[in-house]
Amino acid sequence: MMKFDGIVAFVATAETGSISAASRRLGLAKSVVSNRLAELERVLDTRLIQRSTRSLSLTENGQSFLPRAQRILREADEAAAELAARSGTLAGPLRLSAPVGFGILHLAPALCRFMEQHADIEVTLELDDRFVDAAAGGFDAVLRHGSVGDSRLIARRLATSRRLLVASPDYLARMGQPETLSALQAHRGVLYAMRDGDWRFAEGDGWTVVRPAAALRVNNGLVMREAALAGLGITLLPSFFVHGQLQDGTLVALDVGAPAEGAELFIAYPRDHGASAKIRALADSLKESFGDPPFWERDIA
């Protein structure tokens, strides 16, 4: 008979890419995960994972079995959550991914508040500034700042946020303050490395793109903010990164005659299993914590 813990071990190994990583996710010894995989393969009478000394890959049968195994785990989790919700409690695992900077600054305290309200939910949070594939990565939900252009996901807006051009008073004293998009082009920028380095501004019925020379490219908003504070150049950041610095004057918001492309904060979850009671409760709790408008926008106003 196929055992549930074997399916759990297989899905964790497939999603993390190694038995070591799966053992860390599950909190089990590597030998236990390996034994459960071997038992599952014995019961199914097929090889699911091709092992070698340096790599691990799914066999054709393993690739075919994976989405069904993931569905089994999701449905079991949803069934347990539904029963818990009927008794007035929410329980069970909830695996989330969020950007590093936002996770540290704002998600962490809001998530702690949520967990105080729902002590039986077991939250796993992974912070990553890379684009995380929620549908294939085994996450129940991901938080994203910006559009969610993935038809496999359903997105729910949590909060609004502007992107603001900011620089330190020292940089502006040395280099001057640009007041037009053409003047902005001549300045040095601290750019987000995960994009093409374009800054987009709304003008008329379309967009104007500015491509400043890069003083620094980095894939983390907190580092971008520190570089701007150090006077390395102008940067374009969401308001939730810089509201405190704009209040205390260590950064200055620039007006170049056109607003930068905005963005919103979303929680997104795979379409094929919908929003569980836990995800709905989390979204409601986060919206309450951030406010409407969110506190970072109120601080700037």
Rank of each mutant, 00 (worst) to 15 (best):
P109R: 04
A136P: 00
M115E: 15
L96T: 08
R47M: 07
V11D: 04
A91Q: 03
T16G: 01
R86G: 04
R271L: 11
N219R: 15
A80P: 06
I72H: 12
F65W: 11
V190K: 08
R36M: 06
E288C: 08
Q247A: 11
R271T: 02
D140H: 07
I7W: 04
N220W: 13
I279R: 03
G149H: 13
P67Q: 08
A29S: 12
S55C: 12
S55M: 10
H187P: 04
R211P: 01
S161C: 14
D248C: 05
M1E: 13
A186M: 08
N220G: 11
L48G: 04
R271V: 12
E288D: 10
A281P: 03
L83Y: 07
N35I: 11
V43Q: 04
A186E: 07
A38Y: 10
A215L: 13
G204F: 11
R156P: 03
E116A: 14
E126C: 08
R217M: 10
R195N: 07
A260E: 09
E116V: 14
L158V: 12
H118D: 02
R113Q: 15
D284P: 08
A98S: 05
A202V: 07
S151L: 15
L125E: 10
V8N: 03
R188Q: 03
A21I: 02
L246A: 05
Q247I: 03
L94C: 09
D120I: 04
G27R: 09
W199C: 01
Q245W: 06
L107V: 03
V43T: 13
G244F: 05
A253S: 10
N219K: 11
T124Y: 11
P99N: 11
A258I: 07
S18R: 01
S31G: 08
G244C: 00
D248G: 03
G221C: 05
E75L: 15
P293D: 13
A110N: 03
Y192I: 14
S151E: 15
G231I: 13
L26I: 06
G291K: 01
D120W: 04
L172H: 06
F114N: 05
F266N: 02
S182C: 02
I279D: 09
P238M: 02
S20F: 06
D170C: 07
M194W: 09
L237S: 13
A167W: 12
Y171H: 08
G257E: 05
